[in-house]
């Protein structure tokens, strides 16, 4: 009974600490959805693969979304013709490299500031590397889900000879041109175009906030329950045996990160509950790997990429993350 009560106290302590950050996260992601136009942003991005990868990885600073919000944004980036390196870099880095997550990690790991900076540094390194690797794939379409590939801007040669022989829904425009209705850009315009007054947009923002809050809150609750359960119910000897070994501790935390699927805005509080028992490298592995790939995320990624591409990203991210954090365990901490 004592243990149960402790577990509940832990559970609620995680929740009351994390929910404010979750609220900030969903507020930002909802505002961006309705007030930022990615197309203007894409035009400003560098075209070189390496610089593009870096720019994409750092774009999270302007898009403070966690990994649940960034897949839709990355998808919009791809569809609107952003270079591969930019969208992949964004996909991997944005959930970690953004002000809200940085602040939350700072709050949680105030006592060990090196974790905060290593988290950002490693994420940037891994994201830029993978994005750079992917940029060597000239044409992304074989790696994308057909529905996304079809929405991408096509090369000129693929354009049908006659503008009449195209499938889709069209609106006749005044000058004899047509507007393709099922084009994602048009969809976007219809959904959130400048035609809507700000008051309506704000209502949509609040509505979206509530929706995301509900969805992510439920995942947060399950994650916190697991963290609290592990802390009170698993014998400390077991955890220490696993958590103090340089290699198993990292592998265990990476596996945990992938399974728990906790939102990156609040995952540092989850990791914090393992701060006393796990190696620094293992905590970093959790904080770096979790936002890139986890079970919840894979479902979302499948809406954009083919399984093959996700597998590549997963293997690359896992290996890089493992090697970097192992280095920390052996040589730094």
């Amino acid at each position: 009974m004592e243990k149960f009560s402790n577990g509940l106290t832990l559970f609620f302590s995680l929740l009351v600490e994390a929910i404010p950050f979750l609220l900030i996260g969903v507020a930002f992601s909802s505002l961006l959805l309705f007030f930022v136009n990615e197309r203007t942003l894409i035009k400003l991005l560098p075209k070189s693969p390496l610089l593009g990868a870096l720019a994409g990885s750092l774009m999270g600073v302007f898009f403070p979304v966690c990994e649940c919000g960034n897949v839709p944004v990355a998808r919009r980036l791809i569809v609107q013709g952003a270079p591969t390196s930019v969208s992949v870099g964004f996909l991997l880095a944005a959930p970690t490299i953004n002000p809200v997550v940085f602040w939350a990690t700072w709050v949680a790991f105030r006592g060990q500031p090196e974790i905060v900076f290593l988290r950002v540094g490693f994420t940037l390194l891994i994201a830029v590397t993978i994005a750079w690797v992917f940029s060597h794939q000239r044409d992304m379409r074989p790696l994308l889900q057909p529905i996304v590939a079809r929405q991408m801007p096509k090369p000129r040669s693929a354009e049908p000879a006659s503008p009449l022989l195209r499938s889709g829904t069209f609106l006749m425009q005044s000058s004899g041109t047509t507007l393709k209705m099922d084009d994602p850009v048009t969809q976007e315009m219809i959904a959130s175009g400048p035609a809507k007054p700000v008051s309506v947009k704000l209502q949509l923002v609040l509505d979206n906030m509530v929706q995301e809050m509900k969805e992510l809150g439920a995942v947060l609750i399950m994650g916190s329950a697991i963290a609290a359960f592990v802390q009170v119910a698993v014998p400390r000897d077991w955890i220490l045996a696993l958590g103090q070994n340089f290699i198993t501790s990292i592998l265990a935390m990476m596996l945990l990160a992938a399974v728990v699927s906790i939102c990156s805005t609040v995952d540092s509080f989850f990791a914090l509950s393992f701060a006393a028992t796990f190696t620094t490298g293992a905590q970093l592995a959790f904080l770096v790997f979790g936002p890139m790939i986890d079970l919840k995320n894979i479902g979302l990624l499948l809406t954009v990429f083919k399984p093959r591409a996700i597998f590549y990203i997963f293997v690359l991210a896992a290996q890089l993350c493992f090697i970097l954090t192992l280095f920390i365990n052996f040589y730094v901490s």
Partner: peptide, 15 residues
């Protein structure tokens, strides 16, 4: 309530 169905929001759990 204004309706909006874009944004590609995919949910993991049923609402």
């Amino acid at each position: 309530r204004p309706s909006y169905s874009g944004g590609g929001h995919t949910t993991l759990l049923p609402p």
